[in-house]
Design a binder for these strands. Structure first.
Lengths: 116, 116
DNA sequence: GGGAAGCGCAACCATTTGGTTGTATGATAG
DNA sequence: CTATCATACAACCAAATGGTTGCGCTTCCC
């Protein structure tokens, strides 16, 4: 467990916004899955212009979900699983809030309360 | 484990889009935390108009993250933890794609894989 | 009954998004 | 050196976002 610096609200906004598009989720899935993916290689898979895909990658990069690595004249897109894990943690925290409601109910019946 | 119907791309879009706003995440956190929250009670907590908060709640409702229950002239907003869990699963699947890349490597070096 | 609270909805506005095309630049192949 | 490929970036445009105000309807309280 490394103590990672917390994401700011604006960063969290960018992460979820980046994930709120099927094309971008598909790109993330491909690069996390290990597909060797230059931008033009990615662009060939979708029926939209190269520039459009380039913009999607830029959004993902701004959210920290992918990185670009120069390799000759190509830019290889690689996934950043840490950011995905971080987003998942955030959702986990929301779920915890919900679960915590039951521990409050439990406090009304002191004997039934389990330790944390 | 219940076999829940899969979310469509459009639904997933709505879920992540709804989460891509700090005010909406805060609303979700409050209602999941059990705060008795009518729309006007929520609106009082943010420095924006009632109608703006109403729109945020509508976005959350459209994403299935929240439900409204009529109670007299008030609408009580309640959180839907199932959708949060669903979103988390989706992120989990993306992480699995990444982890699966190592299982190939692991087959070359059996034994090095033990962590989660 | 009548006024006020709570909500929904529509109109409006500035900004952002998601796509396009076109142009410029760096790396590669011949 | 020249032509081409991969990328970057700017301008442009339609549509969606996120906020506002205003109006109308239902419900509650005196």
């Amino acid at each position: 467990m490394v103590a990672l610096p917390p994401l700011s609200d604006a960063e969290i906004d960018r992460v979820f916004h980046a994930l709120a598009d099927a094309t971008r989720r598909d790109i993330v899935a491909r690069v996390l899955g290990g597909e060797q993916a230059s931008i033009s290689a990615l662009a060939a898979r979708y029926q939209m212009s190269f520039a459009a895909v380039q913009k999607h990658v830029a959004v993902l990069e701004g959210a920290g979900l992918v990185t670009k690595q120069a390799h000759g004249r190509e830019r290889i897109v690689r996934g950043n699983p840490e950011r995905i894990a971080r987003a998942r943690e955030l959702l986990g925290q929301l779920e915890e809030l919900w679960k915590a409601r039951f521990s409050q109910l439990d406090s009304l019946f002191p004997d039934t309360r389990s330790q944390e």
